[in-house]
Simulated assay, not measured.
Amino acid sequence: MARGKGDEGPHLVDRHVGRRVETRRKALGYSQSQLGAALGLTFQQIQKYEKGANRISASKLWEIAQFFKVEIGYFFDGLTAAAPGVAASDTVSLDHDYPVTRQSQEIARLAPRLSLSQQKAALAMVRELAGEQKADAQD
């Protein structure tokens, strides 16, 4: 079974699920070694899961969800469902394509404490720093 299109590397869904595992692990303060030990795996295997290099089996994903105390669906949050008649591989959308950092997690944690006008100002600043244009007019 193909992992992605051509030699592009891991499938987008595998990368997304791996990032969600990494995000949750870091949010809870676990190292790759600690998560691996809890699941009977090495830290290298956790590393491969988080990068999407190795797919996570359904049973292992269930174990990870139990360990993190989240529903299985947590790992798929942020993926866009396929429209009728359109191949799912053509519509997969990721929340981000960059590794999670402590700083990005802290920004995400603190943002809800801001007023709506402060959130808009912070978003405008982040977009400016990232060199991106406003995504839509409904912000």
Results as ranks from 00 to 15, higher is better:
Met1Leu: 14
Ala2Glu: 14
Ala2Val: 10
Ala2His: 12
Arg3Glu: 08
Gly4Ile: 10
Gly4Pro: 11
Lys5Gly: 15
Lys5Ile: 15
Gly6His: 15
Glu8Arg: 15
Gly9Val: 07
Asp14Ala: 15
Asp14Arg: 15
His16Leu: 04
His16Ala: 02
Val17Thr: 14
Val17Cys: 12
Val17Glu: 13
Arg19Pro: 04
Glu22Tyr: 03
Arg24Trp: 02
Leu28Cys: 06
Gly29Gln: 10
Tyr30Cys: 00
Ser31Pro: 10
Gln32Arg: 13
Gln32Asp: 05
Leu35Phe: 04
Ala38Cys: 00
Ala38Thr: 00
Leu39Tyr: 03
Leu39Val: 10
Thr42Asn: 03
Phe43Asp: 02
Gln44Gly: 02
Ile46Leu: 03
Gln47Trp: 05
Gln47Asn: 00
Gln47Val: 01
Lys48Pro: 03
Glu50Tyr: 02
Lys51Ser: 15
Gly52Asn: 12
Gly52Asp: 11
Ala53Gly: 06
Asn54Val: 00
Asn54Met: 01
Asn54Ser: 00
Arg55Lys: 14
Arg55Trp: 08
Ile56Leu: 06
Ile56Thr: 05
Ala58Ser: 07
Ser59Pro: 02
Lys60His: 01
Leu61Asn: 05
Leu61Trp: 09
Ala65Arg: 12
Phe67Arg: 01
Lys69His: 05
Val70Thr: 07
Ile72Glu: 05
Ile72Phe: 02
Tyr74Pro: 10
Phe75Ala: 01
Phe76Gly: 01
Leu79Ala: 02
Leu79Pro: 03
Thr80Ile: 08
Ala81Asp: 13
Ala81His: 13
Ala82Glu: 03
Ala83Asn: 09
Pro84Leu: 04
Pro84Ala: 06
Pro84Gly: 09
Gly85Trp: 14
Val86Lys: 14
Val86Phe: 11
Ser89Ile: 09
Ser89Glu: 14
Asp90Gly: 00
Asp90Trp: 02
Leu94Pro: 03
Asp97Glu: 15
Tyr98His: 11
Pro99Ile: 01
Pro99Lys: 01
Val100Glu: 10
Val100His: 03
Val100Leu: 05
Thr101Arg: 11
Thr101Asn: 12
Arg102Lys: 11
Gln103Ser: 15
Gln105Ile: 06
Gln105Arg: 13
Gln105Met: 13
Glu106Met: 11
Glu106Leu: 09
Ile107His: 06
Leu110Gln: 14
Ala111Trp: 02
Ala111Ser: 12
Pro112Lys: 12
Pro112Met: 07
Pro112His: 08
Arg113Tyr: 13
Arg113Phe: 10
Leu114Ser: 08
Ser115Cys: 04
Ser115Arg: 07
Leu116Ala: 12
Ser117Phe: 07
Ala122His: 02
Leu123Val: 05
Leu123Arg: 04
Val126Pro: 00
Arg127Thr: 07
Glu128Ile: 05
Ala130Cys: 08
Ala130Ile: 00
Gln133Lys: 12
Lys134Val: 12
Ala135Glu: 11
Ala137Arg: 01
Ala137Ile: 05
Ala137Met: 09
Gln138Gly: 10
Gln138His: 13
Asp139Leu: 11
